[in-house]
């Protein structure tokens, strides 16, 4: 049988990979991609705890709400990326250094 710790360990690895991507990527779109990976890793934990019988229905329900919020977040994030691209002609996060410019 699969143990709870195996799933939690996988989730920790995925979260670390996503965090590394979010900290090292220069392209704003790819930073958002990395954030999605971290959200998925967190969701995996909710399902794992529910499966182990530690969370009642809260596990899948919280995962469901997280999915909705991740969808809203990526929609707003990508809209911001498009607006920033129109202004700066670049999506490189290192180039975007001015406020209200």
């Amino acid at each position: 049988m699969i143990s709870l710790n195996a799933v939690l360990m996988l989730s920790a690895v995925l979260f670390a990979v996503g965090l590394a991507g979010a900290l090292t990527r220069k392209n704003a779109i790819l930073v958002l991609v990395s954030i999605e990976i971290m959200m998925n890793a967190a969701n995996l934990n909710f399902i794992a705890f529910w499966r182990a019988g530690l969370l009642e229905l809260t596990g899948p329900l919280f995962a469901l709400f997280t999915l909705v919020i991740a969808g809203a977040e990526s929609a707003v994030g990508l809209a911001l990326v498009i607006a920033i691209y129109r202004h700066f002609k670049s999506v490189d996060v290192a180039n975007i250094q001015t406020l209200s410019g």
């Binding site: 049988m1 920790a12 990979v17 965090l19």
Partner: peptide
């Protein structure tokens, strides 16, 4: 930084008592 965070999470997981998932 990400490796430190990942190692921290993995360390916490490794120190908790393991539960096999029920059938």
């Amino acid at each position: 930084g990400a490796a430190v965070v990942g190692a921290g999470l993995a360390g916490v997981v490794a120190r908790t008592t393991d539960v096999p998932l029920p059938a």
